[in-house]
Simulated assay, not measured.
Amino acid sequence: MKKLVLTGAAGRLGSYLREPLTQLCDELVSTDIADDIGTLYAGESYMSGDLASMDDMMRVLDGADMVVHMGAYADEGPFEKLLGPNFVGAYNIWEASHRLGLKRVIYGSSIHAVGMHPKSDFIDTNVAHRPDTFYGLAKCFAEDLGSLYWDKHGLESVHMRILSCAQVTSPRALGSWLSYDDLIQLVTRCIDSPTVGFSVVYGVSDNDRAPVDNSQVNFLGYRPKDNAEQFAADILANAEPANPQDVGDMCHGGPFASVALGNSGMATMDIVDDTKKT
């Protein structure tokens, strides 16, 4: 592949994807709204751009073969705050990709697109949308965009419904954890699979307690290696019992399922900022 674009390159997940993605293409263009992202890897360049600007996305995506779209406002918030980066930004990515003739969009979707499904349901990739927040609603919108642009324009896309790609700090994460190594493998398979059409895949490691089913997308070749069970004894020894009256404990979306619309879900979670530094 000649040129690959990574949006959200200044984010925590983006920081772990930048170096591996340089190995898959002649030129990696990393982009975000930040002024810079530190030292660049060999084969990487940086272009600042606003997802909500079609002109910026046309400039950034020009000449690319594929885009790994990880950029977004990465939390629940008022609808107006998410409208530009998450809703309009997704449209701009797909429309610019169509106009410029890209082959594929690899999208960082989320479990929050289906977060209100009960955790007792072992859900597969064909389950109906059931967002838990405006943030989750934006993920539903982008997934439907991907379906529409595949049907109308033949633009391929893979939508990675990431569960929780962060250090394991809670009982929920024993099932939902996606390690950084497995994230890299997942994105790589989304890029190098010969054909994907419109596909949805759960971003989750090979956890004993994983609450989702990827069997419908075995053709992607994603075979996670890591298992959060290694953390179970320590996590469970210090955890409060689950509350069956709390939808945050009982639904796939976890804390996002229980917060009021427009209120931060991340503020209720213990997320370790281990962003990779260059």
Rank of each mutant, 00 (worst) to 15 (best):
D75W: 01
V105Q: 10
A128H: 06
D144W: 05
F134C: 01
D55H: 12
I111D: 12
V60T: 10
Y135I: 01
W94M: 15
K119V: 06
F134A: 00
Y149T: 05
W94K: 09
G101Q: 11
S109A: 10
G43C: 11
Y135H: 01
L51Y: 14
R99T: 14
S97M: 03
C140R: 01
G101E: 14
K152G: 12
S120R: 00
K119G: 10
D124S: 15
H129G: 05
F87Q: 06
N86E: 11
R130L: 07
A72T: 06
A90L: 03
D62Q: 08
A74F: 00
D75P: 13
R99K: 15
W150C: 11
L137N: 02
F87S: 03
A90V: 08
S147F: 08
V114L: 02
S53A: 12
A142Y: 00
G115W: 04
L100D: 15
V127Q: 06
G136I: 02
A64H: 02
A72V: 03
Y46A: 07
M58V: 02
N86T: 08
D55F: 04
Y73C: 06
I93C: 14
F87K: 00
Y107I: 08
V105A: 05
D65H: 12
F141Y: 15
V88P: 11
N126A: 09
D62A: 10
P118T: 11
G154T: 04
A128L: 12
A72M: 08
G115A: 07
D55I: 01
I123M: 06
R104V: 09
A113C: 09
V105F: 08
A128E: 12
E76N: 05
A52Y: 06
H112Y: 12
W94N: 13
D151H: 05
D55G: 13
N126M: 07
A90I: 04
H117N: 06
G108Y: 12
D75Y: 01
D56H: 08
E44P: 04
T125Q: 05
M54V: 10
M70L: 08
G89S: 09
L83Q: 12
D75E: 07
P118Y: 10
A90S: 15
V67Q: 04
L40W: 09
A64I: 10
M116L: 13
T39P: 11
V68T: 13
E95C: 02
K139L: 02
K103W: 09
V114W: 01
K139P: 04
G136T: 02
A72Q: 07
A142N: 05
S45A: 09
G71L: 11
Y46Q: 10
M58E: 15
R99F: 14
T125C: 02
G108T: 15
L61K: 01
D144V: 03
D144G: 03
F79E: 05
I106D: 03
I111K: 04
D55S: 14
L148M: 09
S120C: 02
Y46G: 08
N126K: 07
F79W: 13
N126I: 04
V127S: 14
S45C: 12
L40K: 03
L155H: 12
S48H: 05
S45V: 14
K103C: 03
V68M: 08
D50L: 04
A74T: 00
A128S: 11
G84T: 06
G101H: 06
I93N: 13
C140Q: 06
C140V: 15
G154E: 03
E44R: 00
L148T: 14
S110Y: 04
E76W: 00
I111F: 13
